[in-house]
Design a protein around this nucleic acid. Structure first.
Lengths: 173, 173
DNA sequence: CGGCGATTTCAGTCTTGACAGAAATCTGCG
DNA sequence: CGCAGATTTCTGTCAAGACTGAAATCGCCG
């Protein structure tokens, strides 16, 4: 599994007999739609999903633009967004003018990071809320305490979950 | 008409010297903003957050509207949304015209349900994607396999996490 | 019934932001 | 230098949907 694909393949061509662009539409559009419900722009979701199935894995902005039918300007903006989130990597080989994008590795770490941050912010807010309710009756504070407990629980347990993940197979990314 | 609706049924906890409406703005607006990033309308997030700290816990539509400065029409629509999601309950006491809303209990179960559903959909999509890549080289399918593994992992482990939660504290549902 | 408060529905307004396309900027090369 | 492709930035358009306020509906009470 350590071997790369052909090193001297003509970059203008898609991988040998890879399926046509629309073969993966069901996955690409479906997954993009799911990401959209989580606040990710549709075009960004499409790019991310496309980079999970594209052949070759590394794609230029022009290839992405053409494959998904979105403008180069949008590709530029959305890839930046995806790179900031850590989901996509860009690299540019020396001597090559055009950069290539690929799906980032370490999917699990990425997923956990993406979920831990909102949890931390939520817990900070419920903690602050509990401070603001300092003088109030215990019964009144119960709702916020419950919320706070939930977030604290996840904050504690996610590292252990990650550990389980790394332990289960040695397929670490 | 002398409205002698004497507090025959005393509220769970008195609103007597409860802090002014704006005392919790920091929490309410902050938490609503956080929910907004997850696709929840701002007004809905405010209502949810308000119902975590309001005194009494049960509030009428008119009270919510006034406390948060949002129209009654919006309160109607957003409470419906929150009730569908299971985060808010409505009850109407017999002989009473107006209904009251309150935060739903079982916060942890609610949170887990809210996270499990997207995970299931995501895994269904990555599985489908893997089917579509059936004939492709293993190296090409590696990205989707990784994604699929992550979702499968969470699907397996979340029930165990929930069990841990119920075991640790014997207080909540 | 008929009235009235409570609630929902509906139509219109307005903001947000996703996206395309054009212009501007960048980068290495002849 | 200056060209040419690649990339980013910028501006304008457009659609989605959040929210308001008014009208319609509901449900209880006299």
């Amino acid at each position: 599994m350590g071997h790369d694909m052909t090193a001297s393949a003509a970059p203008e061509f898609a991988a040998d007999d890879a399926p046509s662009i629309h073969h993966y539409d069901e996955f690409i559009d479906g997954f993009a739609a799911l990401m959209e419900t989580r606040g990710v722009p549709r075009a960004a979701g499409r790019i991310f999903s496309y980079l999970q199935v594209s052949e070759p894995a590394e794609q230029t902005a022009a290839q992405i633009s053409q494959a998904l039918g979105i403008s180069l300007g949008t590709v530029s903006g959305m890839t930046r967004l995806l790179m900031n989130a850590g989901w996509v990597r860009r690299s540019t080989r020396r001597g090559e003018r055009q950069a290539v994008y690929r799906a980032a590795e370490g999917t699990m770490t990425l997923a956990v990071d993406g979920v831990m941050e909102p949890i931390r912010r939520a817990r900070a807010l419920t903690s602050r809320g509990l401070e603001l309710m300092a003088g109030r009756p215990d019964a009144a504070r119960a709702r916020l305490r419950d919320l706070n407990d939930v977030y604290r629980f996840f904050e504690e347990w996610f590292p252990m979950i990650l550990e389980q993940w790394h332990r289960r197979g040695e397929k670490e990314t």
